[in-house]
Simulated assay, not measured.
Amino acid sequence: MSGFTLGGFDLDVFVRETLAEDLGIGLPGGGHDVTSESVIPADARFSGVMDSRDAIAVAGLPIAEAFFRALDPGIELEMLVADGDEVEAGTDLMRLSGNARAMLTAERSALNTVQHLSGIATMVRTYVRMMDNPDCTLLDTRKTIPGLRMLEKYAVRMGGGSNHRMGLWDAAMIKDNHVLVAGDVGEAVRRAVEAGVQEIICEVDRIDQIEPALQAGATRLLLDNMDPQTLRIAVALVNGRVPTEASGGIDMNTIKAKAATGVDFVSVGRLTQSAPAADIGLDFTPV
């Protein structure tokens, strides 16, 4: 494998299950690449270059490497850039040479991964640049594709953003439906405090909810769908007692104004939910 490690993510399992899906392992007639096996001689060799047709922030190259090495352990592979690098259109990302069948079988899984993760990293880099505020941190959300959260949040970091909570387990986030059941913001926060939760993020969408949430023990306030003027008022009321986060209605047209209100964080769901895939190709030549 590539030597790539990521906490909470099993690269070997991901590669094995992704290739198994593409090869139809376990399905009637499945378990092989029928096109490559019928057209390409078993001993044929290819060399290839993976390149970006877009200007991108790169993410996912070590995972692509793992796909190729899983099918051809002896493949010769050279990384020309690193994850997190920002490259111009036309940049070569990786050179590889090895068994032609193995390279063709791994190609789609490798490209899908790099295209998707680089698309996320590129969008994040664009948002960070549009935000233009080193005192405010761009965060992702839990709006991720099921099964890909660790990789997508990794891509956010490669683009220059940071991660919000990883899931339902590492912080409480009290939202309107929790408040509806508890009765009010203060009671919802108190219940989380009494349960021993250390990090309690409380969503507020009205100014009058701020003090009850803080008095009850919230450790961070998510200021939801507030315009810049209201955000400034909210930040002044909080007065540094806990970190503040702006969320909702944030896009490339609004992020700079909202980040400039004094909030510590801005969270954007579309970073993982709606990032378009980067245009990355892989061209082979017989050896």
Rank of each mutant, 00 (worst) to 15 (best):
residue 1 M to P: 12
residue 5 T to P: 02
residue 12 D to A: 15
residue 15 V to N: 06
residue 20 A to L: 01
residue 21 E to H: 14
residue 27 L to T: 14
residue 27 L to I: 03
residue 27 L to Q: 15
residue 33 D to I: 07
residue 34 V to R: 14
residue 36 S to Q: 04
residue 36 S to A: 15
residue 37 E to F: 06
residue 39 V to T: 14
residue 39 V to N: 08
residue 41 P to A: 13
residue 42 A to R: 15
residue 52 S to Q: 04
residue 53 R to S: 03
residue 53 R to V: 12
residue 55 A to C: 00
residue 55 A to K: 08
residue 55 A to I: 02
residue 56 I to T: 00
residue 59 A to P: 03
residue 59 A to R: 10
residue 59 A to I: 02
residue 61 L to G: 02
residue 61 L to Y: 10
residue 62 P to T: 00
residue 62 P to K: 04
residue 62 P to L: 00
residue 63 I to H: 03
residue 65 E to H: 07
residue 71 L to V: 04
residue 71 L to P: 10
residue 74 G to W: 09
residue 76 E to G: 13
residue 78 E to A: 14
residue 80 L to Q: 11
residue 81 V to G: 08
residue 81 V to W: 08
residue 82 A to N: 12
residue 87 V to G: 07
residue 93 L to M: 04
residue 93 L to I: 05
residue 96 L to D: 06
residue 99 N to K: 12
residue 105 T to F: 11
residue 111 L to F: 03
residue 115 Q to T: 09
residue 117 L to A: 01
residue 118 S to L: 06
residue 119 G to S: 04
residue 120 I to F: 05
residue 123 M to I: 11
residue 124 V to C: 04
residue 127 Y to K: 02
residue 127 Y to R: 05
residue 129 R to A: 14
residue 135 D to C: 06
residue 135 D to K: 14
residue 138 L to N: 00
residue 141 T to I: 01
residue 145 I to C: 06
residue 154 Y to M: 06
residue 157 R to H: 10
residue 157 R to V: 13
residue 160 G to M: 05
residue 162 S to T: 09
residue 162 S to H: 14
residue 164 H to V: 06
residue 165 R to T: 04
residue 167 G to W: 12
residue 168 L to T: 06
residue 169 W to F: 14
residue 169 W to L: 11
residue 174 I to R: 07
residue 181 V to Q: 12
residue 183 G to L: 02
residue 184 D to F: 07
residue 185 V to K: 07
residue 186 G to E: 12
residue 189 V to D: 11
residue 194 E to D: 13
residue 195 A to I: 01
residue 199 E to F: 13
residue 203 E to N: 08
residue 208 D to T: 07
residue 212 P to C: 06
residue 212 P to I: 00
residue 213 A to T: 00
residue 215 Q to F: 00
residue 216 A to R: 14
residue 220 R to F: 00
residue 227 D to H: 13
residue 227 D to S: 12
residue 228 P to L: 06
residue 229 Q to I: 09
residue 229 Q to W: 07
residue 232 R to M: 11
residue 234 A to H: 10
residue 237 L to I: 14
residue 237 L to H: 09
residue 239 N to Q: 15
residue 241 R to Y: 09
residue 244 T to Q: 10
residue 247 S to I: 03
residue 249 G to R: 11
residue 250 I to H: 08
residue 253 N to R: 15
residue 257 A to K: 13
residue 259 A to R: 11
residue 264 D to F: 01
residue 265 F to I: 00
residue 266 V to T: 01
residue 271 L to R: 12
residue 273 Q to W: 05
residue 274 S to A: 14
residue 275 A to L: 09
residue 278 A to L: 05
residue 282 L to A: 01
residue 286 P to R: 14
